[in-house]
């Protein structure tokens, strides 16, 4: 099995397992998202390096997901500080 196939399979299996596990616990959407983002970074790093074009796009996806993660954290911090959103 090629690296790309292993990468896709790992990501899909991990996301499926995470969705199932967190659905049992019944958590909020931001927790799902945070776990997905962390998993994306870990699995991508484990299967790197990719060729230049793929690497460039996975980096862009990483930047976008990191931005979403920062937004989730910022909203949580504001919530803890009691700032109305």
């Amino acid at each position: 099995m090629r690296t790309h196939d292993r990468y896709m399979l790992s990501l899909t299996a991990t996301y499926a397992a995470t969705t199932l596990a967190l659905a049992v616990y019944g958590t909020t959407l931001d927790l799902y998202l945070s776990v997905f983002i962390v998993e994306y970074f870990v699995i991508t790093l484990l299967h790197s390096p990719f060729n230049a074009k793929t690497q460039r796009i996975t980096n862009v996806i990483g930047f976008v997901l990191f931005g979403v993660f920062l937004l989730i954290v910022a909203l949580r911090v504001l919530q803890i500080l009691g700032v109305p959103i």
Partner: peptide, 11 residues
């Protein structure tokens, strides 16, 4: 997210 990764691999 998986669609974006699939696009990256296809590219």
């Amino acid at each position: 997210i998986i669609a974006a990764v699939t696009y990256a691999i296809a590219k």
